[in-house]
Nucleic acid binder design. Structure first.
Lengths: 116, 116
DNA sequence: TGGTCATTTGCCGGATTCATCAATTGATTA
DNA sequence: TAATCAATTGATGAATCCGGCAAATGACCA
């Protein structure tokens, strides 16, 4: 018996569910980066960053390349950027909708009642 | 000043990071469903299901339609299914890779050393 | 009005995740 | 070899999430 698919999917999304990890991926969108560069770009403490990188590494989202004492990270599967793009579109759509409701409310001066 | 984008994205993915919530979305892929049907299809207790629905409702991922004492849920933005599809492709790619490494190891009888 | 069904909310102990600090490892150089 | 730099690991308290039960709400029927 193996892990059901929906559980694997849930773990996958859980791995993406942290602001620092999203930031890391967005920096890696421009290609491979050494940890020393990620520290200032992501803006968290080195050990904390390393933990977040470890989580994504174990989830196979990123891969590692060592050169001497330096460690370079990159995204394993470019499809991941497509995923982030779709996510962005969904969020944008949701926020736009909210924004429009807000404007309607301000225009009518009434509460968010039905549009009847 | 408002919430940074990467934080919004992280919350979005966090909302997807739970097996029951993934299951709910997969059931809703075939269209609107009343809670009474979701209970057996998702396979969790009513109150627990309701909490998960509430989380996704507050995140605007699903929307509600009430008819008498019954409540029908559906996915707000169909793009969400596209997202799940991309996620599936990423996971499949990752598992395929792992599978291939495994086969190589079994064929050679050695550990996962470099391919030199 | 009282009772029942569908769904939601409140509450709570247990488990997991987060973020910080100190200590460790591994490579490089004096 | 000792000192130093890059990165990781371990430990820990605080915060958050999970999942179950009991109670509440709201619509419908007798």
């Amino acid at each position: 018996m193996s892990t059901p698919i929906y559980q694997v999917k849930a773990e996958f999304f859980k791995t993406l569910g942290h602001p620092a990890r999203i930031r890391i991926l967005e920096v890696l969108r421009d290609g491979e980066r050494p940890v020393s560069e990620l520290i200032p770009e992501v803006g968290i403490e080195a050990s904390h960053l390393s933990q977040q990188l470890g989580i994504m590494r174990r989830a196979n989202l990123i891969q590692v390349r060592k050169v001497g004492a330096n460690v370079y990270y990159s995204v394993t599967e470019p499809l991941l950027f497509e995923l982030l793009e779709v996510a962005k579109r969904i969020i944008t759509a949701s926020l736009t909708e909210t924004q429009e409701l807000l404007e309607q409310m301000q225009a009518s001066g009434t509460g968010p009642g039905p549009t009847t």
